[in-house]
Design a protein around this nucleic acid. Structure first.
Length: 115
DNA sequence: AACCTGACTCCTC
DNA sequence: GGAGGAGCCAGGT
């Protein structure tokens, strides 16, 4: 028997929750981490339908180019939350090179980009 | 089923 | 860096 579609959402939420504080990831990256390659849009949809009460760090998800994707409200809030955890946001844009995932190794070698 | 839309991404110019 | 277009997948009408 096939699992309900919600299962895909659950995986995406898990991937989002796995993002460390002060770090951001793109929709595509989240989808990939959830075992759903090329489903960036699904990640976006999943987040748009995500209940607020489950402690999901939705603000750590931005577009691949580092820009905040939210069309309607939430954009301001996302920016505020990111700054609150040390992520540099400028003109609704995040420095992916500095805060993106898969930079853990670089950070260990070159040091914290925020220094 | 066709058509439209969207918290996406990539390429070209 | 912005504009246009194509590929992408899921939902709503």
């Amino acid at each position: 028997m096939a699992a309900p579609v919600k299962e895909e959402y659950r995986r995406i939420y898990a991937a989002v929750k796995a993002i460390p504080r002060g770090r951001v990831a793109s929709y595509g990256e989240i989808a990939a981490r959830a075992g759903l390659p090329r489903r960036a849009r699904l990640a976006g949809r999943a987040l748009s339908e995500a209940p607020d009460g489950i402690g999901l760090p939705w603000h750590r998800i931005v577009r691949a180019d580092g820009r905040i994707a939210c069309r309607s409200n939430g954009m301001r809030e996302q920016e505020r939350r990111l700054r609150a955890e040390g992520v540099e946001v400028r003109n609704g844009r995040v420095r992916m090179g500095a805060h993106g995932l898969h930079h853990d190794l670089d950070r260990a070698i070159w040091g914290d980009p925020r220094d």
